[in-house]
Write a protein that binds this DNA or RNA. Structure first.
Lengths: 143, 143
DNA sequence: AACTAAATGCAAGTGGTTTGCAATAACTAA
DNA sequence: TTAGTTATTGCAAACCACTTGCATTTAGTT
């Protein structure tokens, strides 16, 4: 997908949110699109700085794009936040505690996931996992 | 459990690891013991600073105590690391995206967990969850 | 009681992330 | 197309959580 196509692809979502279609914005989306794995803000900035895109712009856009669900925040333990495009279907990750390698776990079939992780990720050892639910508690749901 | 009891309770694990039984160390364990919920390093320091315990000491000890599995690192999205005593059995959390409230999810029966979350946590709405597996990839397992 | 090594407190440093602000670029409507 | 409006950007400085160096203290040992 080239930049023009990318632009048309994201135009509706950005317009609906009242956001402008800017060069840095598209570049960040393109960088995420071209990455197989979730990236940190800094990794994104490293790639984006070739086009004179400031780190502040990267951080601000990741925030903005997450807010309208074009980008998804992925949280890994011990590490900084990672971001990925939210276009893919919901999935999880396996993280190597030694080298930091990240492998996508394609389906979210929670019951059989742990077996699947070993079978499909090439991880021979799963030491632990983290599962967190995010939503609204009773009190906040009332507001 | 008073401090003396706490001290005796943790003595074996600390001694086995070659760690000394110090006032700051015990204070941090006591603070975690007295908290129903996982705390950030800063929250722990806020409580510990009454006893003239430096923040560097808190950070160093959380690292140390995590290394010998007396303390467990809990990772929540959008936020700083949280720590809890590792004495309890393995469990997960539900986090309110609005007020930050954290509720323990007692059992790790992954298949039925999502239903259970709503039933037991008082959360009326679960928007998303994060599930990450940590272990060793094929390459690192060989080393 | 003297010795050894770990642990602490203090203060300074580090590094990722955020913020203020003036300049620029994107969209809107004549 | 052009002028006007507002979001967005780049830059630089600030911020804040966390880490590190080092001299001193403390725990555990002989």
């Amino acid at each position: 997908m080239n930049l023009a196509a990318l632009q048309e692809h994201y135009r509706p979502a950005l317009q609906d949110a009242g956001l402008k279609i800017t060069k840095p914005r598209l570049a960040i989306l393109a960088i995420l699109k071209n990455s197989k794995l979730p990236l940190t803000a800094q990794e994104i900035h490293a790639k984006a700085s070739k086009f004179n895109i400031d780190q502040a712009t990267v951080y601000r856009n990741l925030e903005t794009l997450s807010a309208i669900d074009l980008v998804r925040l992925v949280n890994f333990q011990h590490d900084h936040n990672h971001y990925e495009l939210a276009t893919d279907e919901h999935h999880h990750h396996a993280i190597c505690e030694q080298c930091g390698k990240v492998v996508d776990i394609s389906k979210c079939d929670i019951a059989s996931l742990e077996k699947q992780v070993k079978a499909t990720s090439g991880f021979t050892q799963i030491n632990h996992h983290a599962l967190e639910f995010f939503g609204l508690c009773k009190t906040c749901a009332k507001k």
